[in-house]
């Protein structure tokens, strides 16, 4: 298993928002964390990445990370793309955003990854000198992914990548994320857009009230009267 969480809880001060969550994602696997607003998805991802206080175990490729700081976790290959493309620096240009992501690598490797990333998201090559904040929502999400990939993640955590994107852009994004399969990393996507989730995931878990209440395969999500929809209590 690439990424495992055992009995993981997330806290904001005394308030506990996720309770004893066990999950694991293997290399190359896409796991969707489904849930409505306030179900605890972002808190779970934040706890994994180390920006939300947590208790419980976290390991990445066998290495324990639950006591490590967010910086160390990011450096070890557990990379989060926060909600609202929160890993971007809006006034900095596309090139600068990428340069920050790649700055720890030696020159040759940096160029290699950069060309890899630009091959995955060709639009970013055209927008190089523009401030990230001036890109469209879809382009920003591509850049957010590109920046995350620049860290060569073993496990990538995407928090609501579909947020605020038009349906036509969503299809492009699904295609882009599917192209990442070739990189063989573990991917954990928090989503409330079921159609988007169904198109991407190998597996899903359903989160409500900070607990996993259901697990299943994406095929289940095709049935609007199925268990998943009923449990989410939406749509």
């Amino acid at each position: 298993m690439t990424l495992t969480a055992t009995s993981l809880s997330a806290h904001y001060g005394r308030l506990q928002v996720c309770h004893n969550i066990d999950l694991s994602v293997s290399a190359g696997e896409y796991l969707i964390v489904l849930g409505a607003n306030g179900a605890g998805k972002s808190s779970l991802l934040g706890a994994l990445a180390g920006i939300v206080a947590s208790s419980g175990g976290i390991t990445l490729s066998g290495r324990r990370l639950d006591q490590a700081s967010a910086r160390v976790r990011a450096g070890s290959g557990l990379v989060l793309v926060p909600e609202g493309r929160g890993n971007l620096f809006a006034p900095l240009t596309v090139e600068e955003n990428l340069a920050i992501a790649l700055r720890h690598l030696p020159g040759a490797e940096r160029r290699e990854i950069l060309s890899e990333v630009l091959a995955l998201f060709p639009i970013l090559g055209e927008r190089g000198a523009q401030p990230a904040g001036m890109l469209s929502g879809g382009e920003q999400q591509m850049l957010a992914l590109a920046v995350a990939l620049g860290r060569r993640p073993k496990a990538l955590l995407l928090d609501e990548p579909s947020q605020g994107l038009a349906p036509v852009v969503l299809d492009e994004l699904i295609a882009a994320i599917n192209r990442l399969r070739s990189l063989g990393m573990a991917l954990l996507i928090a989503e409330q857009n079921v159609r988007f989730a169904a198109a991407l995931g190998d597996r899903f878990v359903l989160l409500r009230g900070g607990e996993i209440i259901h697990e299943g395969a994406p095929a289940e999500l095709a049935d609007r009267r199925g268990t998943a929809f009923r449990l989410m209590g939406t749509h």
Partner: peptide, 22 residues
């Protein structure tokens, strides 16, 4: 690179932490 990190820290401290910037 130092300057980029400085500017990144100002606009998005959480993002900068996630990018392993001190």
């Amino acid at each position: 690179s130092l300057g980029r990190m400085m500017r990144a820290s100002a606009v998005n401290a959480v993002g900068a932490t996630l990018a392993a910037i001190p």
